[in-house]
């Protein structure tokens, strides 16, 4: 966070606090920032518990979704037959609303961890699959000719040219995927669960505990930012290395 964004954040918080207090907006409609923070502080144990559950589901979902996305992207990039068969389904999968797939997965796999992980993985899958497909695709050109002239095998060509060239694509896909994993886990918890941020949000909304609802939304945002930040950190480390700075210049 740079100085300008920190300043904007502080100003937004002050405006929020002043407006809600000045107009005396009821806390069940739009609570002030301090009311939300007090609610979170007083119920820290519940918040931590629910956050840990959603974080676990999101993390596992991100790992599974990225692994499957990578495998499908790899297949589509390498085999024309796989590209022809899989690409329409991969694109189609992105158009299926997660609120439709979540109840279905809950029906098939129950209300435990597995269905949450699968919903998170489902949302993660598309960005990583399409970026892996784009990044690993054979670009031909002078590099292909170079590898041909030095007598390189297709495996050597893949690992020593296509994979390194795909790294910026994969990181771009991962940045989107990991944030979607959090959304997937929360939506899955909405459908059926007894813990997690989604469950907490539902409970808070049923009891008109709007400060707590806002609290869960904050935590959900922070979780997404942490996931996104972890990929940004990898990108930053690569950017600062002499070997990879060209890719992220």
């Amino acid at each position: 966070m740079n100085r300008a964004s920190l300043l904007a954040f502080i100003v937004a918080c002050i405006v929020w606090e002043v407006v809600t207090r000045y107009f005396d907006i009821p806390r069940y409609i739009f609570p002030s920032l301090t009311v939300i923070l007090i609610e979170m502080w007083n119920n820290a144990g519940v918040f931590i518990h629910n956050t840990a559950i959603t974080a676990t589901e999101s993390l596992l979902g991100a790992v599974v979704g990225c692994a499957i996305g990578l495998a499908v992207g790899y297949l589509m990039a390498l085999r024309r037959l796989a590209e022809n068969i899989l690409l329409p389904y991969v694109i189609g999968s992105n158009s299926v609303p997660v609120v439709a797939i979540a109840p279905l997965l809950a029906l098939w796999f129950g209300h435990g961890l597995l269905s949450k992980v699968l919903v998170a993985a489902f949302l993660c899958f598309f960005p990583i699959a399409i970026n892996a497909y784009d990044g690993l695709r054979d670009r031909g050109g002078v590099f292909k000719e170079l590898f041909s002239v030095i007598g390189a095998s297709s495996d050597f060509y893949f690992w020593n040219l296509r994979v390194p060239l795909a790294i910026p694509f994969l990181l771009a896909g991962a940045k989107v995927s990991v944030v979607l994993a959090v959304i997937g886990a929360v939506v899955a918890e909405f459908v059926g669960s007894d813990a997690g941020l989604g469950f907490g949000m539902l409970q808070a909304s049923y009891s008109l505990n709007t400060p707590r609802l806002f609290g869960y939304m904050f935590v959900s945002c922070i979780l997404g930012l942490i996931f996104y930040g972890s990929i940004m950190l990898i990108e930053l480390l690569l950017k600062r290395s002499r070997r990879w700075e060209w890719a992220f210049g």
């Binding site: 002078v142 590099f143 000719e145 170079l146 002239v149 020593n160 040219l161 390194p164 070997r243 990879w244 060209w246 890719a247």
Partner: peptide, 11 residues
Amino acid sequence: YLFQQDSLLEW
């Protein structure tokens, strides 16, 4: 073979 572009692998 030396190509028109140097075709070096940047990484």
